[in-house]
Design a protein around this nucleic acid. Structure first.
Length: 572
DNA sequence: AATACAAGCGCG
DNA sequence: AAAGCGCGCTTGTATT
């Protein structure tokens, strides 16, 4: 009997789907041809330990989820290509073929179908990265060569596995959806905005506030939604603001300010998450944003549709577990500074973080005089603040945590100089753009003007702040992916409970056992039957501990979670 | 009429 | 409160 293949490569071969089993040495040990409708059945019978290799998770996985099939691991060639082609850990001669394979830089099939529906309507095919067997096999070899060319293949393998697990999870989160209570959302809207208005009309509370604002402006016809017009109206009554932003208006003492700020708050809720949003995004009792793994240069996920990255806290009460189910809601306290402590090997910062609120730890060390100061100083260090309270506190932070500060300062200097920085696992920042280098070159020319030099300084500093933050934000994203990947595996290994008697909005596979249903940078929500909630909570904590060890080995850093078990996900 | 951009505000 | 990073979405205005 042949050993299980290391990879199962799935691709198109003409009209057919073909699954090729490969050993670590790229020897073919199996080949199955099937039709697209047969693909789920073939995937289901394959060895569960084998890693699936495919062009783009969005192209292959949703069909399996529809059939109730969840896979353990994959290599998403599109996402891994993006990492490896740019990674400073990959040797130049192994990166060159990846950089030359431009077809693999295409956006995902999902992005293509949503961004250019006109193309998709025709028979032009779905676009995206290559999908036929020969191309896929060649790309897999290129990627393997890139990984083995590295001085530290282990880190890159970890990164590619985490990124690919994220791709699986993103599809699963979309399929499962976030349980969403339409009645709770509607009640909230009615309480704040009044009864649902006809299409194209403002809600009652909004209209009342508009009247109050116009009265205070002494102009019954004042336009409140056009910034230039509103600004002129404000100037007429003596409010000499330079913009209509909330924080600037709040500085002025005038009867129009309070109702105007309230008006802006309500119109924001109405337009961003009002009845129209509810109809479009959560009509079936699940909110299904499209998650975009690797959508941010730092490796964070982006999202498209419904604004999953910006669900206002105000709406959290509408996140409601199914009957008999609860949520395990967990977020990591101060993820980024903890990651910074670990990657810089800063024992003093790790000590401040251990077993407590990190900002309290900094305060306890006598570095600053309040928790608020500790927070603003730490954020300033990671974002590159130079002025204000944050800038003022940086010297104290530098004295107390020299290693951590040296790491972010060095990253900033590298970016300022036009260089590339990398995360802990080897995701590298984009190289400086041609335009950016042009600005720097101009400033260095003998006939450069003062304006040229000022512009160059500014863009260099801008880039420095980006690379400063890149290493921390990107490594935090890696930690989060490691956490998710571990947890996802543990949950998927749980035995299936009997199917719910009532069909779940999440489909059969997610109605039979605990599953992740939301992820946002450093926060997760697991939807679980009540009986398993404690067990799931333990798995969530254990996954965090294992992620820390996987990334940072024995370095003494911990990642405490704020965790609660609740039927409604409102923040406490 | 369609598209690009800026302002503003929501999230981490 | 904003400052210093990263995003998405809506609205109005400017451009074509």
């Amino acid at each position: 009997m042949t050993a299980a293949p290391k990879w199962n490569v799935v691709a198109h071969d003409g009209e057919a789907v073909v699954v090729v089993g490969l050993t670590a040495g790229f020897d073919e040990v199996s080949r199955i041809r099937c039709t697209w409708p047969e693909w789920p059945a073939v995937a289901e019978t394959a060895d569960a330990a084998t890693r699936w290799v495919w062009s783009d998770t969005v192209r292959w996985y949703p069909r399996l989820l529809d059939a109730g099939i969840v896979l353990a691991r994959c290599q998403d060639l599109r996402l891994c290509h993006a990492i490896l082609r740019a990674s400073a850990l990959v040797a130049d001669d192994a990166a060159a073929p990846l950089r030359a394979a431009l077809a693999w830089d295409a956006p995902s099939a999902e992005a293509v179908t949503t961004a250019t529906p006109a193309l998709f309507d025709l028979d032009a095919g779905p676009g995206g990265v290559p999908d036929d067997l020969a191309e896929v096999l060649i790309e897999l070899r290129r990627q393997e060569a890139a990984v083995t060319s590295s001085a530290d293949p282990g880190r890159l393998r970890l990164l590619l596995a985490a990124e690919s697990a994220g791709a699986l999870l993103a599809a699963e989160l979309h399929a499962a959806g976030l349980p969403w209570s339409r009645p709770v959302h509607e009640a909230l809207l009615e309480e704040v905005l009044g009864a649902r208005p006809a299409a194209g009309v403002h809600a009652p509370r909004v209209r009342e506030l508009a009247d109050v604002v116009r009265a205070a402006l002494g102009d019954p016809a004042a336009s409140l939604d056009s910034q230039p017009k509103l600004l002129r109206s404000l100037h007429r009554v003596g409010v000499l603001a330079t913009s209509t932003s909330r924080w600037e208006l709040a500085e002025y003492d005038h009867p129009v300010i309070e109702p105007l700020l309230q008006y802006k708050k309500l119109t924001r809720l109405e337009s961003a998450n009002g009845w129209a949003w509810l109809d479009e995004w959560a009509a079936d009792g699940r909110f299904r944003p499209v998650y975009v793994p690797g959508g941010v240069v730092t490796g964070r996920w982006a999202s498209s549709g419904g604004g999953a990255l910006q669900l206002p806290r105000q709406l959290r009460p509408a996140v409601r577990a199914d009957p008999g189910w609860v949520f395990v809601v967990a977020d990591v306290a101060q993820l980024e500074p903890r990651v910074l402590a670990a990657m810089s090997g800063d024992l003093a910062l790790a000590e401040a973080a251990r077993g407590r609120d990190l900002y309290d730890g900094i305060l306890a060390g006598g570095v600053v005089s309040s928790r608020a100061e500790a927070k603003v100083a730490m954020l300033g260090a990671m974002y590159g603040a130079t002025t204000g309270d944050s800038g003022r506190l940086l010297p104290a932070l530098r004295r107390a945590y020299p290693r951590a500060m040296a790491l972010v300062d060095a990253a900033a200097q590298t970016g300022d100089d036009g260089g590339v920085v990398s995360t802990w696992l080897g995701r590298s920042s984009p190289p400086s753009s041609e335009g950016w280098r042009g600005v720097q070159d101009r400033a260095g020319a003998p006939d450069a003007s003062e304006a040229d030099r000022v512009r160059a300084r500014r863009s260099a500093r801008d880039r420095g702040r980006f690379t400063r933050n890149f290493v921390v934000q990107g490594t935090a994203a890696e930690w989060a992916l490691a956490w998710l990947a571990d947890l996802r595996g543990v949950l998927a290994a749980q035995p299936l409970a009997p199917a719910e008697p009532v069909a779940s909005a999440s489909g059969i596979v997610f109605s039979q056992r605990a599953h992740l249903c939301f992820f946002l940078h450093d926060e997760i929500i697991v939807h679980t039957p009540v009986a398993q909630a404690e067990q799931v909570a333990d798995a969530v904590r254990l996954a965090a501990a294992r992620a820390a060890r996987l990334m940072f080995g024995d370095f003494p850093i911990d990642f405490p979670l704020d965790l609660r078990i609740t039927a409604d996900a409102a923040k406490t």
